[in-house]
């Protein structure tokens, strides 16, 4: 009897194996439309840039364009500028954004102040590009709000001559506008996770405010702070629209250089340059994001408990 059943089961399994394999495969068809779109407009373009950096015009493997770009002093100087700009604005944005999130987090948890900040930063962090450039032209440009104001009583001061706005200093100043809100967004959850009972414990053991921060607050927040700063760095490093709209002459950062070599008259000849520069940019962002992921893991230990 038991042997019979056994046989019946294996028999039906053998007959149904083709059907079952089919059943196992069909769910995968569900992802095909999405996968097709992602392959065409995301995966393939990414791969083509990465491999294109190492190909000559006929598609043969070569180091020429990468070597040419990364040994040229102009390209390197501009790349360094871009790294510095991203680093500076990430640092300033991170410090001010962290202070801001602390100031907001110490307010009432359901207060109007907090709600306004959470909504407003969501918009302001997105408020990049062309519109932001015009905002700062309206403030510090030739007929700007501050410029006209300063001109009338201090015609020789820094803000009276708006040419600084259209260079690297101006870019740094403008970038902070979206860096601070972004820092607020990513850092506020970390501040919220500083438990009040840690402070109480420190106080009841006789610790001062300074000791609390030095021994508890700062060590707990450091991974979060560094991780958020890396995110800010990648954000500034990838930004293009603001600079493109503000600076019409000259390529002072790598994204502008890439667009320059894409749209110049000799477009095709420079495609290799664009790809080699792009390769450098992606390499930096990938390293930054990898470090960011590592730091996030360290963070989660505190935030999950």
């Amino acid at each position: 009897m038991s042997q019979l059943t056994q046989e019946a089961i294996t028999g039906s399994a053998a007959r149904g194996s083709g059907y079952r394999a089919w059943r196992r495969v069909t769910p995968y068809f569900g992802v095909l439309p999405f996968l097709t779109l992602a392959t065409l407009f995301l995966l393939w373009p990414t791969i083509s840039v990465m491999t294109g950096a190492f190909q000559d015009s006929k598609g043969h493997f070569t180091f020429t364009s990468v070597h040419d770009v990364w040994t040229s002093s102009t390209h390197l100087a501009i790349f360094k500028n871009t790294l510095l700009l991203s680093g500076e604005t990430a640092l300033i944005g991170a410090i001010l954004g962290a202070l801001l999130s602390y100031a907001v987090a110490t307010g009432k948890p359901d207060g109007i102040l907090r709600r306004i900040w959470v909504s407003a930063t969501g918009v302001l962090a997105q408020f990049g590009g062309v519109m932001l450039a015009f905002g700062f032209v309206a403030t510090f440009g030739f007929n700007g709000f501050i410029t006209t104001f300063v001109k009338s009583f201090a015609p020789h001061s820094f803000f009276a001559n708006p040419s600084w706005l259209y260079g690297i200093t101006g870019l740094a100043f403008v970038y902070c506008f979206f860096q601070i809100p972004l820092m607020f967004i990513v850092f506020l959850p970390a501040i919220d996770n500083l438990r009040p009972n840690w402070r109480e414990a420190s106080d009841s053991l006789g610790g001062s405010t300074w000791e609390y921060w030095r021994r508890v607050g700062i060590p707990v927040l450091t991974p979060s702070f560094l991780g958020s700063s890396l995110l800010l760095f990648a954000n500034a490093f990838s930004a293009y629209a603001t600079a493109a709209s503000l600076i019409s002459q000259g390529s002072i950062i790598t994204p502008l250089e890439i667009s320059g070599s894409l749209s110049s008259e000799t477009g095709l000849a420079n495609a290799a340059t664009a790809k080699a520069l792009s390769f450098g940019m992606v390499a930096v962002v990938v390293v930054v994001m990898a470090l960011y992921t590592l730091l996030r893991r360290k963070v989660s230990k505190w935030e999950k408990s």
Partner: peptide
């Protein structure tokens, strides 16, 4: 970065 995606 967006600018790299454009190249692609």
């Amino acid at each position: 970065p967006g600018i790299v995606l454009v190249v692609g």
